[in-house]
Design a protein around this nucleic acid. Structure first.
Lengths: 137, 137
DNA sequence: AGTACAAACTTGCAAAATGCAAGCGCGATT
DNA sequence: AATCGCGCTTGCATTTTGCAAGTTTGTACT
């Protein structure tokens, strides 16, 4: 899908920014699994390849969903952290998870977060938000 | 992204089914704009091309989100309607719309549905659901 | 000091998905 | 009988992806 410079539709606007599957997986890793380093994203089960990961991180930074902080004189300290715009995706991600939970017979319910999503979504969100200090962009 | 036969993650499961941008636009048209005919989907602002539309409709039918009913001896009666699985995407679509509304300065707020989404989401969902009679899976 | 290792990318290339234009078969309309 | 609209399919150029390999810079070990 061609990226549009402007749309009247909020859905298309959103999809243009993070509507490819890889972006959402990166965002999931940032928001839910609290990942921040290149190597951590690479290690996900979904096996994103290095060039795609690199491109996605860049485009998410450009779109203002992630902030990249590079350690002075140490590449190993490079970090990607969510902005408020990304934190506001929690409701979207939770909604998707609810749907997936309902229809995916293979969901691993032993992951603690899954139970909590069903029984106490708001509490889960509050807890996860604490990973990110004050962003208040 | 390669389609996986099974995932443990509900998000990846969902993305494998409708995680490409075109599928979600078709689903938006079905759920929000009550479209049902090929020609109606084609007419969307986003200008999906015929082959892609055809492929997406097929894959959504295969995935069980849409049902195709062909009129006997009249192609013009062919219709695509959502199953319960698709109706359960309302929360996802609404969540995406909320996010898009917040960050897209170009959203057309004169579209009646936009106002209603903000002021009375549940009512909006109830009203839209009435377009679909009894689906009950 | 020298070697090894790791982290974060980049590059090259084949394979798949997309965008665009054109065409096709069929029933309805004129 | 001829034309039109509808729901597609086909062909082909362009773009995006997947995979493997290589590059650069800092860190750790001997």
């Amino acid at each position: 899908m061609k990226k549009r410079s402007s749309t009247v539709c909020p859905i298309v606007y959103a999809l243009d920014i993070w509507g490819d599957p890889w972006s959402l997986i990166v965002l999931r890793d940032v928001l839910i699994h609290n990942k921040r380093h290149y190597r951590e994203f690479l290690a996900s089960r979904e096996r994103i390849s290095t060039n795609i990961l690199s491109a996605r991180l860049q485009s998410l930074v450009e779109a203002g969903l992630l902030v990249k902080t590079e350690g002075d004189s140490n590449r190993a300290q490079t970090m990607y952290r969510p902005t408020q715009q990304a934190l506001d995706l929690f409701p979207v991600i939770f909604a998707i998870m609810h749907w997936g939970l309902k229809y995916n017979p293979n969901t691993d319910m032993t992951i603690p977060i899954m139970q909590e999503l069903v029984t106490n979504e708001k509490g889960l969100e509050q807890r996860l938000l604490q990973n990110f200090g004050d962003v208040t962009s």
